[in-house]
Each structure stands twice: as C-alpha cells, then as structure tokens.
Nucleic acid binder design. Sequence first.
DNA 1: GACAGAAATGATAGCGCTGTCAATTTGCGT
DNA 2: ACGCAAATTGACAGCGCTATCATTTCTGTC
Lengths: 337, 337
Amino acid sequence: MRVRLEDVARATGVSPKTVSRVLNEEASVKESTRQKVLAAMESMNYRPSPAARGLAGRRSFLVAMLYDNNNNPASTYLAEIQDGVLDACDANRYSMMACPLRMRGQDFIRRVDALIADHEIDGVIMTPPLTDYPPLLQRLQEQGVPYASISPLHRGRAIGVCMDEQQAAEALVNHLVELGHRRIAHIVGIANHGASRWRLAGYKDALAAAGITYDAQYVAQGEFTFGSGVMAARQLFALPQRPTAIFAANDDMAAGVMWAANELGLKVPRDLSVCGFDDTPLATQLWPPLTTVRQPSREMGKLAALQLMELLRGRGTGLLVQVPYALQLRESTAAVP
Amino acid sequence: MRVRLEDVARATGVSPKTVSRVLNEEASVKESTRQKVLAAMESMNYRPSPAARGLAGRRSFLVAMLYDNNNNPASTYLAEIQDGVLDACDANRYSMMACPLRMRGQDFIRRVDALIADHEIDGVIMTPPLTDYPPLLQRLQEQGVPYASISPLHRGRAIGVCMDEQQAAEALVNHLVELGHRRIAHIVGIANHGASRWRLAGYKDALAAAGITYDAQYVAQGEFTFGSGVMAARQLFALPQRPTAIFAANDDMAAGVMWAANELGLKVPRDLSVCGFDDTPLATQLWPPLTTVRQPSREMGKLAALQLMELLRGRGTGLLVQVPYALQLRESTAAVP
DNA sequence: GACAGAAATGATAGCGCTGTCAATTTGCGT
DNA sequence: ACGCAAATTGACAGCGCTATCATTTCTGTC
C-alpha cells in the first residue's frame, strides 16, 4: 500500500515523532538525523497524507482565494491572480481553493463561516472589493483566520500586496499632457473600489501638476464594464467642448470609449486619444492597441500568498508589499490635433 | 469546541455509526431515524471534518481541475469552466482544486502523480488538450483515478461533456453563404486541438452543402492567438482573389483578422465579413461586434463535474453529454458587396 | 406465535499523523 | 570525571470519522 511516516521511521531507525519533526521543519533535530530521514523519504517516495496531517495537527494546509463573482464574471484579472497564488502555494506545499462568493444576500456571513468550516481553511486571500467589506473582515478576525489582501482600499493594518495606482494614473495622464492635451476627461470606476479612487486621485494630481483646472464636467461615472464605458463616453462627447483625450479607469471601459468614438466617426487617435488601465489582453486586441498601465496581477497574487504563508508559519507579522507599475504606451494616444 | 459526529449521536440517542450512515446517505437507515439525525445536525450546526472523513474513509471529496497553462495563460474560457465546476462541486459537497499543468517536460508523469498523491485527489476534470494526451490518460487509469473530459477529441470511451462544434461551424459558415459569400476563407487553430478539426470539418461541410468547391488556398494556419490571426489574415489578403468572408476558428484570431483588415483600410463588414467562434467577452468588445458561436463553457464545466461525481458515487458508468450551441449573429458579417 | 430472513443498528478497531510530556543524550564548565 | 542545562529523541494518546462484522429489531409466513 501507501508509504507511511511510520515506514520511513522504521527504515531510518528513529521514532515516528522524529520523522514528523523533519517533515514539519521543526528546529530541534540533529542535522545528521535530518539528512538520514530526508534521504529515506526521498528514496521511499514518501508522501505525507494531508488528511492525517490535518486531523492530527488541526490545520489543513489549505488557503482559500475569495473573490466576488458578482460583478466580474470570469475576469482575466482574477485568473491571473489565481495563477500567481497557485504558484506560491505550490512552492510552499499548500493547496489553494478558489472560492467565488456573492456579496449580496443576507446569509453572506453564514456562507463565509460554512466555507471556512467545511474546508477547514487555514488562511484566506482576498481581492477587491472583498478586501474592504467590513462584515467579512470582522468575521475572519473573530474566527481567527489569517488573511492577506490584494489591492486593499484601506491600507492601514492590511497585509498583502498593493500597487501605487495613484502615481501610475498620474504618470499616464501626464503622458497625455505631454502630448499637448488640455481637455482630458476621466471615466471613474465603481465607487467603492479603491482602484476607482486612486485612479481619479492620480488624474487630479496630474492636472494640478500641469496647471490645468479640474472640471467636474469632464469626469463621468462608469462601472468598469464595456457598456458603462460606452455610456460615459457618449455623455462626454455631448459636451460643448469635447475632450481631446479620455482616460478610462480600466481597459474594458476604454474599449467602450473606442466603440462610442467609432459610432460618431471619430478616429482614434487622430481625433481622440484614449487610454485605459490594467493592460488586460484586450488592450492589445483593440484597434488601435491601447495605451494603458500594466498591473502585474500574477506577481501580486504570488506575493499576497507568500505574505499569508509567512503569517501561517507564525514568522513575523506580515507586510503590505508594493509592486511597481509600468506604462504601456501604444497607438491609442497621440499628439493633440 | 467543535461539534463532532459523536455529539450528534449522543443528542439523538443513536450510535455514531448511524449518524455516519446518515451523513453518507447510506441506504439502510430507517426514515424516522434519518429525520431525527438530520434535525439534530441542523440544529447543532454540525459540520463534518473533511480531514477525519478523508483519513477514515480513504477519500478526500476533492476533485482536481487539470488544465494546460502553457498555451492560454489565464483565458476566460478556463475561468468560465472553473466557475461551472465549482458550482457543481458546491452542490455536491465536493471541493475543487485548480491545477495548472505544464505539458512539456520529462517529469510530466511525476508531476501528475505528485498532484494526485499530495492532495489525495478523488477524481479529475480535464480540459483540452489534456483530454487527449495519452500519457496522462494512461497514468490516471493506472492509478485508478476517475476522470471526466471537457470537449475531448476522441469521443469513443470518453466521459464528460462536449458540443457539436462541427455542426455549429457548419451553421456559421452557412450563414455566410446565405449572405451571398462564395470566397469564404477559414483560419484553423492549433493542430492537435479537437476544436481545430471539428471547425474545419464543419467549414468543409457547409461549402459542400452550398456547392462551393473547397480550395486549400483559402485555409490558413493559426494558433488560436490574436497574433496568429493577424498573420493568417495578411496571407489571405495577399491572395489574387481576396476572400469576402473569413471564418476564424476562435474569437481571438477573428480579432486579429479585424486588425489586419484595418491595416489595409478594409472596412468590416462592408468590405469583409468576419466571424469567430466561442463568444468570448472580446466578441462584444470589438468594433463591430463579432458574429460567432456561443459555447456554454460554464454549463459544460458544471455538467462535466456532475458526470464525474456520478462516477465517484459509483452510480452508473458516466456519460458523454452533449450541450447545444447558439449562433450569435452580430454586425461583423453582412451581405457580400 | 414461533421462526427464517431481511432490515436496522451498534461495538470495536483503526486511518496516518501530531501534541504533550517524559526520557535520553550531548555539550560544557570546573 | 562529575554535574547540570540544553539539545534531542521517544512513548503514548488521541484527532473525528468510517470499515468490518456482530447484534438487535423488524418483517412476513405458516
């Protein structure tokens, strides 16, 4: 049958407990013993049973990736993050479960509890907007489940990973300014997303730095979706003084802007410069390809998972690490006509 | 502390084993007893420990979703399937692990073994092209791990879910024929994908049905990527008799065709009709929106997972169920000029 | 109403590992 | 050498559930 820890112990001539210590990388094992045990494990192709480890040790080596599947069904952003999280888990002998979680509904907390209890989750990784949903955070704390956040809105005590989106947005808008644009519009994302606030703030910073007066007319509300980008753009195009450039808070909305421009016969970038944010695959599949900001989602997933595992190992208290952004200047932006 | 099976047993006045029977939906439990136990479980908020169940019962209630993350990094298609699989798992008290698996590499089999052993996987759900990778299938069979396939190439003994892609492709091309097109080109996908073969076959069927002679010149090779679509289209445009319609084997390549058309100043659909396959979000984010075929990926993931669970429960032998396609006729196709 | 056979239930012994705490060995100073 | 603290190691008892097989409680039959 299966090779058990006991078999390794017998083969090595030590007690099962010692093998267990080696397996769990505990400190007080003599180096020579460690090597012997490790060698035996390797040669016998020993694989610890997660079920047994979980039962005896009261931990599952399982982390859950929580995301809100209500707004963005099957987005690339989430898929990339998941990929990164999986990477980190793999390297640390943890497993990951993907857990879509509808935020609306009375029984939200009960579903969270069920999730944690049913799978005996060791820790949680969250994406926006869950990162800043008080009932969830509170419940996790009550249950004593450690968590790491990706791009949380409130960065105070958060652990996880973030990007300086405000500065990135500022740099992007600054690029438009350098191309000679003065009437630069912005399409904001969903209100409670940190992303929306930061990108708007960066937009304002860039205008201020360029000495352009902020004009609320040029800021339209969107919802991060293609359709909302179309609507917002139509509204901006109806303005007496049409903007010469539009910075949409994400790529999907930027694609919507390009559609709306097309409807009016406006040629991008000749008549209108457009830029987005996120650098999703869509950005390079539009015509013309979209100027945007790359957010290293995969890397962010990985880093968040690593922070969580530091927590789970009891080493340190976890950090909020910051990753760099990168402007992707493509053909959807050009000098003002 | 935690409510255990034993606690439920004591509260109900039956033996732990009986409670276990109820939990596992075994047959020989008197209905009245079952109800009593179920009520107690509910009122005590009992949650069985997966670790203990796994250890004692030698099964993990865990299924793995295997996918090749080499070709399509973080595709929407996979994300949708995963969503469907999660749905089905949830409803059946199973858990799902997402397992990206690089196909290349000598140690492929070892990695598969490790995956199964490390997580004590009960069953596997696969997506193309893993569904038809002999070393993998063989290993799974050797290990006695049941599996279900999504859109497998070889449908002989396969269990899982599929769509009649050939007929869908035929219907799509037939739509072009009805619009008056005669010089209809096709861009094929990656060779070893079933999708590529079926879609090509459907294309040929439609031509044959319309009495149009098949001309290999009008069939270009692609790789399911945007870039390969651009290349293939350029090649088709260079033909002495340019096609008036192009059917790309997926949406990404169709987007590439539209890009290439733009390069040449060809207006879609006025000068060229374009259609894709899959109905990814991209399809409605292009200008003009893409005529394509919707593949119900989410539903397919769900159905495949359900088939697998039937297998795991030992009921029946599992089926290969077929889901219907749906043509999405949009503005990228129009009557021949 | 006694009895075979089926249906329902229970007693017992683990599944493979880790926590706890006790026992042993080691290193070091004098 | 000797004593003592620190470093290692081991014995043992579960973790919460299920498999196995034994036992009890129902059925219906004549």
